[in-house]
Amino acid sequence: MSGNGNAAATAEENSPKMRVIRVGTRKSQLARIQTDSVVATLKASYPGLQFEIIAMSTTGDKILDTALSKIGEKSLFTKELEHALEKNEVDLVVHSLKDLPTVLPPGFTIGAICKRENPHDAVVFHPKFVGKTLETLPEKSVVGTSSLRRAAQLQRKFPHLEFRSIRGNLNTRLRKLDEQQEFSAIILATAGLQRMGWHNRVGQILHPEECMYAVGQGALGVEVRAKDQDILDLVGVLHDPETLLRCIAERAFLRHLEGGCSVPVAVHTAMKDGQLYLTGGVWSLDGSDSIQETMQATIHVPAQHEDGPEDDPQLVGITARNIPRGPQLAAQNLGISLANLLLSKGAKNILDVARQLNDAH
């Protein structure tokens, strides 16, 4: 009898209710805020589980004197976190989706994509230029951005401005803007500013005609071990179906173009009346040469937790077992079709030249 009692006690200790789920994140304040929001949602869904947040620095956090596009290494903000995932030191990792490459290392998958916040870019102005827009900034004003995508589009749109690289986390960039006289304004992701509670610093939100956004911008991705079915089931509740389908289309477009950090590629997606609209573009580094096109596809946005595919093969690095396969494939095909259209119009040449120029500098 006593033996059975011990077995029952052991089973209770090993039951999922007692389990601590370890969540990996970057150390920056924004990353911690984003991770806290994901953990809060998981806690609400699984009140019996405990969650421990483990923060670590990544290569991208450490190399702050070089433009991201020049470092010449993929997975700048993800490699150390993936290493911890691989060694079973954490069970899942919360990322900004735009930091996750469209091809993940073997053994990993994006197990959830959370509801997207505003994906557009924002302009934050130096205190002396508050009330201005990019259009009304004085001639030769210097605007800071760490992104080739932003610089290429904005140089084309605002030729009277000069664009220079600015690195560091959000706090560091804002301090550089406010305390030094080098920059009249800087460009940042609206979602990051909003998550930090800095709505009052948003001086201008850039519309798609001015600057399309990065693939996955404004959404959070939760990376897990691809074979860890328990954790895949656990994080599945975080999937937002519309965000998922938009981001599958965007990531398929980028992957098929073979774009990345070192080339200016941008997108804009919208879901309306059962249609998914995808606009994508590529630019030369100075913005003088560009190709942009829009395509659409009829896609039914499923309700969360309709029964999805059981075999769960990944699409552009994403596993969404609780979302039907048909809409996911339709979104992926839309991204591939748009990429093929741009490639047929000469996108590869623009991107190759951009890559060579970026590598040469």
Score class of each variant (00 low, 15 high):
residue 236 G to D: 15
residue 60 G to P: 01
residue 188 L to P: 05
residue 231 I to K: 05
residue 131 G to W: 12
residue 287 G to Y: 06
residue 120 H to G: 09
residue 130 V to S: 04
residue 115 K to S: 14
residue 53 I to C: 07
residue 98 K to G: 01
residue 215 V to S: 14
residue 355 R to Q: 13
residue 80 E to Q: 09
residue 67 A to K: 15
residue 264 P to L: 05
residue 85 L to G: 01
residue 302 P to C: 11
residue 63 I to K: 04
residue 276 L to N: 01
residue 206 L to Q: 03
residue 347 A to K: 01
residue 154 L to G: 10
residue 112 A to V: 07
residue 70 K to H: 09
residue 61 D to A: 01
residue 53 I to D: 09
residue 261 C to M: 01
residue 349 N to R: 14
residue 64 L to I: 11
residue 134 L to E: 04
residue 123 V to K: 01
residue 151 A to L: 11
residue 190 T to L: 13
residue 116 R to T: 04
residue 71 I to Y: 11
residue 206 L to M: 14
residue 194 Q to C: 03
residue 277 Y to I: 03
residue 310 E to V: 09
residue 74 K to W: 01
residue 249 A to L: 04
residue 255 R to K: 06
residue 331 A to E: 04
residue 170 L to F: 11
residue 311 D to P: 09
residue 118 N to H: 12
residue 130 V to D: 15
residue 59 T to A: 10
residue 220 L to W: 05
residue 349 N to P: 10
residue 108 F to Q: 15
residue 227 K to I: 05
residue 234 L to A: 14
residue 335 G to F: 10
residue 315 L to Q: 03
residue 54 I to K: 11
residue 93 V to C: 08
residue 69 S to Q: 12
residue 84 A to L: 07
residue 43 K to E: 09
residue 322 N to S: 07
residue 202 V to K: 07
residue 148 L to K: 14
residue 206 L to V: 07
residue 344 S to T: 13
residue 201 R to H: 01
residue 285 L to A: 13
residue 270 A to N: 04
residue 322 N to A: 01
residue 328 Q to R: 01
residue 199 H to P: 15
residue 157 K to E: 06
residue 215 V to A: 09
residue 201 R to C: 07
residue 354 A to M: 13
residue 284 S to R: 15
residue 34 Q to W: 01
residue 330 A to G: 09
residue 201 R to S: 01
residue 47 P to T: 12
residue 246 R to T: 08
residue 205 I to T: 11
residue 29 Q to P: 10
residue 191 A to C: 04
residue 250 E to C: 01
residue 161 L to M: 12
residue 41 T to K: 09
residue 86 E to N: 06
residue 287 G to F: 04
residue 229 Q to A: 07
residue 253 F to N: 01
residue 288 S to E: 14
residue 189 A to Q: 03
residue 175 R to D: 07
residue 176 K to Y: 10
residue 66 T to W: 08
residue 160 H to V: 05
residue 54 I to G: 06
residue 338 L to C: 08
residue 140 K to P: 12
residue 234 L to E: 01
residue 24 G to F: 01
residue 137 L to H: 05
residue 262 S to E: 15
residue 269 T to M: 05
residue 229 Q to G: 14
residue 35 T to Y: 01
residue 178 D to Q: 06
residue 127 P to Y: 01
residue 38 V to S: 06
residue 322 N to M: 10
residue 145 T to V: 10
residue 123 V to R: 01
residue 181 Q to S: 10
residue 213 Y to S: 04
residue 303 A to F: 15
residue 258 E to V: 15
residue 143 V to G: 04
residue 339 A to M: 01
residue 85 L to R: 01
residue 273 D to G: 01
residue 87 K to H: 08
residue 29 Q to H: 10
residue 162 E to H: 06
residue 233 D to A: 07
residue 148 L to S: 06
residue 22 R to M: 05
residue 147 S to E: 04
residue 220 L to P: 01
residue 101 P to F: 06
residue 216 G to Q: 01
residue 36 D to V: 12
residue 146 S to K: 04
residue 230 D to M: 15
residue 39 V to F: 07
residue 82 E to P: 01
residue 58 T to F: 01
residue 217 Q to C: 03
residue 37 S to W: 13
residue 128 K to T: 15
residue 162 E to W: 03
residue 202 V to S: 06
residue 138 P to H: 09
residue 353 V to G: 07
residue 122 A to Q: 06
residue 56 M to K: 13
residue 47 P to W: 05
residue 151 A to R: 11
residue 86 E to F: 08
residue 194 Q to R: 13
residue 178 D to L: 10
residue 124 V to D: 01
residue 56 M to Y: 01
residue 335 G to V: 01
residue 340 N to Q: 15
residue 308 G to N: 13
residue 126 H to Y: 06
residue 242 E to R: 09
residue 43 K to Q: 11
residue 46 Y to N: 14
residue 208 P to R: 12
residue 286 D to I: 15
residue 20 V to G: 07
residue 239 H to Y: 06
residue 169 N to D: 06
residue 225 R to S: 08
residue 344 S to M: 05
residue 23 V to E: 01
residue 227 K to E: 15
residue 242 E to P: 14
residue 317 G to R: 03
residue 64 L to G: 14
residue 21 I to T: 09
residue 259 G to A: 11
residue 104 L to F: 10
residue 90 V to E: 06
residue 194 Q to M: 15
residue 217 Q to K: 04
residue 137 L to G: 03
residue 221 G to V: 03
residue 211 C to V: 12
residue 107 G to P: 03
residue 47 P to G: 07
residue 357 L to H: 15
residue 45 S to T: 13
residue 77 F to L: 01
residue 346 G to D: 03
residue 176 K to I: 11
residue 343 L to V: 15
residue 124 V to C: 09
residue 119 P to W: 10
residue 40 A to M: 14
residue 48 G to Y: 09
residue 130 V to R: 14
residue 51 F to I: 12
residue 310 E to K: 09
residue 166 I to N: 08
residue 148 L to R: 09
residue 299 I to D: 12
residue 187 I to L: 09
residue 102 T to K: 01
residue 122 A to P: 05
residue 220 L to E: 01
residue 148 L to H: 04
residue 189 A to P: 03
residue 151 A to W: 11
residue 110 I to G: 01
residue 35 T to F: 01
residue 30 L to E: 01
residue 116 R to A: 08
residue 278 L to G: 09
residue 306 E to P: 07
residue 111 G to F: 03
residue 167 R to N: 08
residue 298 T to L: 07
residue 235 V to H: 01
residue 110 I to H: 04
residue 307 D to F: 15
residue 49 L to R: 07
residue 212 M to R: 01
residue 219 A to E: 05
residue 258 E to D: 15
residue 320 A to R: 04
residue 306 E to A: 15
residue 162 E to V: 14
residue 227 K to F: 03
residue 332 Q to F: 05
residue 351 L to D: 14
residue 214 A to E: 05
residue 27 K to W: 13
residue 306 E to V: 14
residue 69 S to H: 12
residue 140 K to G: 11
residue 152 A to K: 07
residue 38 V to M: 07
residue 226 A to S: 08
residue 223 E to P: 04
residue 312 D to W: 05
residue 155 Q to A: 14
residue 196 M to I: 13
residue 156 R to C: 09
residue 326 G to Q: 01
residue 127 P to H: 05
residue 69 S to E: 12
residue 359 D to Q: 05
residue 261 C to V: 01
residue 251 R to T: 06
residue 280 G to M: 01
residue 323 I to E: 06
residue 342 L to W: 03
residue 104 L to S: 10
residue 249 A to G: 01
residue 353 V to H: 15
residue 292 Q to G: 08
residue 167 R to D: 05
residue 347 A to G: 01
residue 217 Q to G: 01
residue 105 P to C: 05
residue 325 R to E: 11
residue 175 R to C: 11
residue 325 R to L: 15
residue 252 A to G: 06
residue 299 I to H: 09
residue 299 I to K: 05
residue 276 L to M: 14
residue 126 H to V: 07
residue 137 L to I: 14
residue 123 V to W: 01
residue 197 G to W: 05
residue 253 F to Y: 13
residue 62 K to H: 01
residue 289 D to N: 06
residue 248 I to H: 01
residue 188 L to D: 01
residue 219 A to C: 01
residue 212 M to Y: 01
residue 317 G to Q: 01
residue 122 A to I: 04
residue 360 A to K: 01
residue 81 L to C: 08
residue 337 S to G: 11
residue 226 A to K: 15
residue 35 T to E: 01
residue 352 D to V: 08
residue 246 R to Y: 06
residue 40 A to S: 09
residue 296 Q to A: 01
residue 289 D to V: 13
residue 179 E to Q: 12
residue 229 Q to T: 07
residue 72 G to A: 10
residue 310 E to M: 15
residue 211 C to P: 01
residue 61 D to F: 01
residue 267 V to F: 14
residue 113 I to L: 13
residue 47 P to F: 08
residue 288 S to K: 07
residue 356 Q to C: 01
residue 230 D to R: 13
residue 260 G to A: 04
residue 190 T to S: 04
residue 206 L to N: 01
residue 269 T to Q: 01
residue 75 S to K: 15
residue 58 T to H: 01
residue 226 A to M: 15
residue 70 K to M: 14
residue 348 K to N: 15
residue 318 I to N: 06
residue 150 R to V: 06
residue 272 K to W: 15
residue 47 P to Q: 11
residue 81 L to Q: 01
residue 244 L to T: 14
residue 164 R to W: 11
residue 166 I to E: 01
residue 316 V to G: 08
residue 106 P to R: 12
residue 341 L to E: 11
residue 349 N to C: 06
residue 160 H to R: 14
residue 296 Q to M: 01
residue 26 R to L: 01
residue 20 V to S: 15
residue 274 G to A: 15
residue 64 L to W: 15
residue 294 T to H: 15
residue 306 E to I: 11
residue 224 V to R: 03
residue 340 N to Y: 11
residue 45 S to Q: 14
residue 260 G to D: 15
residue 202 V to Y: 08
residue 200 N to E: 07
residue 73 E to N: 07
residue 323 I to R: 07
residue 306 E to C: 04
residue 247 C to R: 01
residue 350 I to Q: 04
residue 124 V to M: 13
residue 168 G to M: 01
residue 200 N to L: 05
residue 43 K to G: 09
residue 228 D to W: 01
residue 301 V to G: 12
residue 82 E to T: 08
residue 272 K to G: 01
residue 336 I to A: 07
residue 223 E to Y: 01
residue 115 K to W: 05
residue 208 P to T: 08
residue 195 R to M: 01
residue 231 I to E: 01
residue 208 P to N: 01
residue 147 S to A: 01
residue 295 M to L: 14
residue 301 V to H: 03
residue 24 G to M: 06
residue 342 L to Q: 08
residue 21 I to W: 10
residue 169 N to H: 11
residue 335 G to T: 04
residue 232 L to Y: 05
residue 136 T to E: 11
residue 322 N to H: 09
residue 84 A to D: 08
residue 187 I to R: 01
residue 221 G to A: 07
residue 279 T to Y: 12
residue 221 G to F: 03
residue 292 Q to Y: 06
